[in-house]
Design a protein around this nucleic acid. Sequence first.
DNA 1: TGCCTCCATCGTCCATCGACGATAAACGAT
DNA 2: ATCGTTTATCGTCGATGGACGATGGAGGCA
Lengths: 117, 117
Amino acid sequence: MMMADDDLLALRLRALAHPARLAIVRALAAADRCQCGEIVRGLTLAQSTVSQHLKVLKEAGLITGTIEGPRSCYCLDRETLAVLAGQVGGLFAALEDGQRNPAPRADALVSSPSTPI
Amino acid sequence: MMMADDDLLALRLRALAHPARLAIVRALAAADRCQCGEIVRGLTLAQSTVSQHLKVLKEAGLITGTIEGPRSCYCLDRETLAVLAGQVGGLFAALEDGQRNPAPRADALVSSPSTPI
DNA sequence: TGCCTCCATCGTCCATCGACGATAAACGAT
DNA sequence: ATCGTTTATCGTCGATGGACGATGGAGGCA
């Protein structure tokens, strides 16, 4: 498959980047228990739509799903979410080797009066 | 505008959820200096495309842009990114009041033999 | 066996995204 | 005043996303 790091990161961020999927993740975080039907009843969305959102989250590795008899149970993959949070945090802390938090290059900002866009 | 919290969070996540925009953010994190032209030369994308990506990041509040004479300079909004990272982290730590990291509800998982989907 | 519930998948429709080239606007330099 | 450079915006096009209803399969129960 050859998926670049940033492609995977982008995939996971995109999976989170929808209000309905955020609601699903929050529900799973609060309950740690799953039950697809409960999620559907909590969301005012069609069952098929919720199922698709769950699929997106599952394919991104953010949740796991198990079949339990007649119903499906979903759980957060807290470890993947923790890694994701760390990656987002690493975006602005940056420069993992060498100095961290480099001082702003003042010389880049003094040449002419600058106005906010 | 009445933007719900999750809508704003989703907007910011969606802004990050693209390899090109991740590359832009990384470049800004590494250099702390901006120059639209440099970003364009680093990306193998058309200048208009990069400009659109910068616009998305700016509208999400993840970067700031200033006009400096004939050119534009972009910088990371590290504070917003930090808040974002915290929000992602809060998704799996959840339950901000009451106990944190609740024990898994074992009873939800023992009713029948479960198989991974 | 037959029904009912639960859920995943399919097909469709409309909206948005991502890419590009072309154009316009702002500015410095000649 | 004009030209070249730099960047933002517009218009377009194909691809993808998100919503839905309909369908189908798996499993529990009468």
